[in-house]
Amino acid sequence: MRFLKLLIFVLLIAGAIAGSLWWFKKPPEVQTVMPTTGRAAEVVYATAVVEPVRWAKVTSIIRERIVSLCGCEGDQVQKGDQLAELDSGDARATLAELEARQELAQSDKERALQLLERRVVSQQVYDKAQNELIRINAITAAQKERLRDYVIVAPMDGMVLRADGSVGEVAEPGEILFWIGQPSPLQLVAEVNEEDIPKVAKGHKALIRADAFPGKELTAEVASITPKGDPVLKNYRVYLDLPEDTPLRIGMTAEINIVTSEKDDALLLPTAAFDGSKLLTLDGDNKIVLLEVETGIKGTRATEVLKGITGDNRVVFPYNPDLAEGQKVRPVPGDGK
Results as ranks from 00 to 15, higher is better:
F3K: 14
I8T: 13
L11R: 06
G15E: 04
G19E: 10
S20C: 11
V30L: 05
P35N: 03
P35L: 04
T36F: 00
T59L: 04
I66Q: 10
I66S: 08
E85H: 06
D90C: 07
A91M: 07
R92E: 14
L113F: 00
Q114F: 00
E117L: 03
R119Y: 00
D127W: 02
I136D: 09
I136M: 10
A142F: 10
V151H: 09
V153Y: 05
A154D: 03
R162A: 09
A163D: 03
D164T: 08
D164S: 13
I176S: 08
F178E: 01
S184M: 10
P185Y: 06
L186S: 01
L186W: 01
V189Y: 01
E191H: 13
I197G: 01
V200H: 03
G203E: 01
K205A: 04
I208S: 04
P214L: 07
T219R: 13
A223K: 14
T226K: 11
P227R: 04
L240F: 04
D245H: 06
T246S: 14
P247W: 10
R249M: 12
I250S: 09
A254P: 14
K263C: 05
K263H: 03
A266D: 11
L267I: 09
P270V: 05
A273L: 02
K278V: 12
T281E: 09
L282V: 06
D283Y: 12
N286P: 15
V289H: 05
L291Q: 09
I297N: 00
R301N: 08
E304L: 09
G311W: 07
R314D: 03
V316P: 02
F317L: 09
N320V: 12
R330Q: 14
V332M: 15
V332A: 11
G336N: 04
